[in-house]
């Protein structure tokens, strides 16, 4: 009986705190994305448009490790019985990718263009039944200064 209550308690804490944390993270992502909207970022290998001769180029990086909460992991486990979209993991990878790209942009806010943006995702820990515990997203690009 105690074990059941413990599990329910974990699910409840995971759900409530996880939702609050996720919302505040999304608010911060949206605010910072709006601040950096002027920085042209592309995955193209060459600079876009007619540009003056660059004075400086550098490699910039941004990384972020994000873990999923207990409730969502539980729901995703249930989802595996029926298949279909696993919404709880969608928000996890979305948050991690946007955060990593934002960190990259914050590192070079004075740049004029960011080219050849690559995003790489890897799961760094696997829990019970090979479930994904947390993922790491690493974004890297070349910043150009005119």
């Amino acid at each position: 009986m105690f074990e059941l209550y413990f599990l329910l308690g974990l699910l409840l804490v995971g759900y409530v705190v996880g939702q609050i944390l996720e919302r505040s993270h999304y608010r911060s992502i949206e605010k910072r994305e709006a601040e950096h909207i002027g920085l042209a970022t592309t995955s193209s290998k060459r600079p876009i448009g007619e540009i003056p001769r660059p004075t400086r180029v550098e490699l910039v990086e941004g990384a972020c490790v994000i873990s999923i909460d207990y409730f969502k992991r539980f729901v995703a486990g249930l989802r595996q019985l029926f298949g279909g979209n696993v919404r709880s993991y969608e928000t996890l990878v979305d948050r991690a990718r946007r955060e990593a790209v934002l960190r990259l942009k914050e590192q070079c806010s004075a740049a004029d263009q960011v080219i050849n943006l690559r995003i790489e995702t890897s799961s760094i820990s696997k829990g019970n039944r090979n479930q994904v515990g947390c993922i790491e997203v690493h974004a890297y690009a070349t910043a150009i200064y005119f």
Partner: peptide, 20 residues
Amino acid sequence: LAGLKNIVGGELKAYTELLI
């Protein structure tokens, strides 16, 4: 610490720093 953080979700700063 990361195990505790796994309950509520969110960023694992220690791991981010480690990988950086």
